[in-house]
């Protein structure tokens, strides 16, 4: 009886080893035939297996005063400031970037322009919807716009307002001699469909 069990055990182990050997041969054959395709597929899937935590909160950045430069720039799409225009009761988040997704959340900062405190042109934009800049027409010369960031608060005074075509980029000049905030929205303020005109408010740094 014992010898039968021993023999069975021995034969079973041999058969399992044979089974593992066959598995190995099959895997080797698959690798030989479709190895490149498998590697390509894994690489492709790995590219879409990304873990990107979405940053919704305001990012902390600092200004180096002597250089008039930020120590680090906010990540694209993150909020780094808030804009307040008391005259039209606007208190909106400012995001770095100007995609549709960003503009849906608040005010966008054109990525080619300067940041508040850097001493150059700052370009902000927002929709002409009721939640954002629908009441832009109520703004007058001398009204204040305040931008609050983690590294300071900047107040600008409106000195000009212009109605431009969307293609007139020269009306939004980038320069580093004077800190100017340019905020624009679509015009007419209450329209239907896409508009080609932009209403721009120009404000200079007060303090």
């Amino acid at each position: 009886m014992h010898s039968n069990v021993r023999e069975t055990l021995k034969a079973t182990i041999i058969h399992i080893i044979v089974a593992l050997f066959i598995t190995g041969i099959v895997i080797w054959a698959i690798h030989l035939i479709a190895g490149k395709q498998i590697d390509g597929t894994i690489s492709l899937i790995s590219k879409v297996s990304i873990d990107t935590p979405y940053k919704e909160h305001e990012q902390e950045i600092n200004l180096i005063p002597e250089k008039k430069r930020l120590d680090s720039y906010p990540e694209y799409g993150t909020q780094y400031a808030t804009i307040q225009i008391p005259k039209i009761d606007a208190d909106l988040p400012v995001y770095f970037g100007d995609t549709l997704e960003i503009l849906k959340k608040g005010v966008g900062h054109s990525s080619g322009s300067y940041f508040p405190g850097e001493g150059g042109s700052i370009i902000y934009m927002g929709h002409n919807s009721a939640k954002v800049f629908r009441r832009f027409s109520e703004l007058e010369l001398g009204d204040e716009i305040t931008v609050k960031t983690s590294y300071g608060e900047y107040t600008y005074k409106i000195y000009d307002m212009q109605l431009i075509q969307e293609t007139q980029t020269d009306m939004l000049p980038i320069q580093d001699e004077k800190e100017i905030l340019m905020v624009y929205t679509c015009y007419p303020f209450k329209n239907i469909g896409y508009t080609t005109q932009r209403y721009v408010v120009y404000a200079e740094l007060e303090q």
Binding site: H15, I16, A19, T23, V26, S46, V48, S49, I50, D51
Partner: peptide, 28 residues
């Protein structure tokens, strides 16, 4: 039985291989 065992081992190895190579939970 050897045939069935080989197939079973193949599938277990495949499952381990895929789970170690691909982060399924972060596919976007």
């Amino acid at each position: 039985g050897v045939g069935a065992t080989s197939t079973g081992v193949f599938y277990i190895i495949t499952n381990i291989f895929i789970n170690t190579q691909i982060k399924i939970n972060t596919i976007t």
